[in-house]
Amino acid sequence: MTSRLAVEGLGHRHAGSGTWALRDLTLAVEPGQVLAVVGPSGSGKTTLLRLVCGLLRPTEGRVLLDGVDAAAVPPERRPVAMVFQGYALFPHLTVRDNIAFGLAVRRVPRAQRRARVDEVAATLRVDGLLDRLPVELSGGERQRVALARALVRDPRVFCLDEPLSSLDPVLRVEARRALSALLRADGRSAVYVTHDQAEATTVGDQVAVLREGQLEQVATPRELYARPATSFVARFVGTPPMSLLPAAALDVPARADVLVGVRAEDVHVGAGKPYVVREVEEHGHEQLLALDVGGIDLVARVPLVMNVRVGETVLAQVNPVRIRLYDGATGRLLP
């Protein structure tokens, strides 16, 4: 089976500055799958989207849509729809005209246009807003209108650039659920860009982590959490992220420059060696303790009932089976 979307050795260099925004990227998205792309700002996420939808031309490598090289296909003819950061709704057009814009410029007959807009608007529950202007909408409504505008052309691939970033936290959870279902419906695929790793791991079937234009790792959320391929991913993914400590500090038998990665839940408090508690952070039913290990924090997840205060000494040990070892020089996961 050919992938819905694949990029091979994809790279893009800024014409002006000559710096690479994206370099040698190879990824694939299968039908019905969502690929979440996550990374700090400047990591090349948005550049990837713009290459996929055709707003930018690759400097090297290819974009394949259903197995076909898209280089010769102009953006408006790619089966790709984009939801821009901030949504880019046209402020002077009503919701109906915003959704119908693509149909109008393609000279789709008026009756057909109306029918299609009504259908899509109903799907996204914006059918009551069709005569309003974007300024009269709430953030969540704007997001749904932007999705409707993308959906109206019946794309095979959705490109979404931070689709939830302008929503408040409560709306965000609800919108994320609705989005998850919509993006996978009818065998569609999506590339979902966000800077929020928690959002990426909830939405994506696969998550790609980018850093300075390079792919650090692409994996399922579970794999990404359990086996971060690099120390960068280890520090970036998970709440809290992995603690990374020199092997010697934890008495792990390894080369001196090896870093040991430990998830907070793999630190057992109550037995082992004594450590001073540097910080306590409560999270609902649990709390996170930062233990001082030779000046570096080792974060442990413990139940709220355990009564610990800053400055106290507790006994703790790490589960030796669940630790990950990283090469101190390259940051790569050691086998």
């Binding site: 055709g54 707003l55 031309r57 102009p74 953006p75 408006e76």
Partner: peptide, 8 residues
């Protein structure tokens, strides 16, 4: 791509 840029 060419179409739009040519238009510009």
């Amino acid at each position: 791509m060419t179409g739009y840029r040519a238009g510009l």
